[in-house]
């Protein structure tokens, strides 16, 4: 039969669990992400020594130095390359597993 080659597979999947999953944004119920996943930046202000190396590798211009000699992140420009985390000598910057970056609140887009 040259017509309807996918019919058998399609009909069979009627009785099987669908492969798509619902998008749930509640914490704890989200789809698990692998270990190396690069999500929203998390910044430990205490360990930061203000060397500003991260500013020099950031492609998007996310990172700004603040008056206290620390840095602030403008997440809306972040392209999640993870170079800042790589060059940070103290490990103060990490990329968390949080993939929900979109928000209604503009202040949440700045990490200090």
């Amino acid at each position: 039969m040259r017509v309807g080659k996918v019919f058998r597979d399609a009909f069979r999947s009627l009785f099987r669990k669908p492969v798509t999953v619902e998008y749930i944004t509640k914490p704890g119920k989200m789809v698990p992400v692998p270990e190396r996943f690069r999500g929203r930046i998390s910044y430990d202000r205490e360990t930061c020594i203000g060397c500003l190396l991260c500013i020099r590798v950031c492609p998007g211009g996310v990172i700004l130095s603040t008056e206290e000699g620390k840095v602030a992140f403008n997440i809306s420009r972040c392209i999640l390359c993870g170079q800042c985390a790589e060059v940070c000598p103290k490990g103060a910057i990490k990329l968390s597993s949080q993939f929900e970056i979109v928000t209604y609140n503009k202040e949440e887009l700045t990490i200090k």
Partner: peptide, 28 residues
């Protein structure tokens, strides 16, 4: 349907990308 089936296969590769490099598309 073939579109959905093909992209279902592609999803396997993307999951692997996520595991190996940390991102589905922009592997860095």
């Amino acid at each position: 349907t073939l579109f959905m089936f093909t992209w279902h296969v592609r999803e396997r590769i993307l999951d692997l990308f996520e595991k190996i490099t940390g991102n589905r598309i922009h592997h860095a």
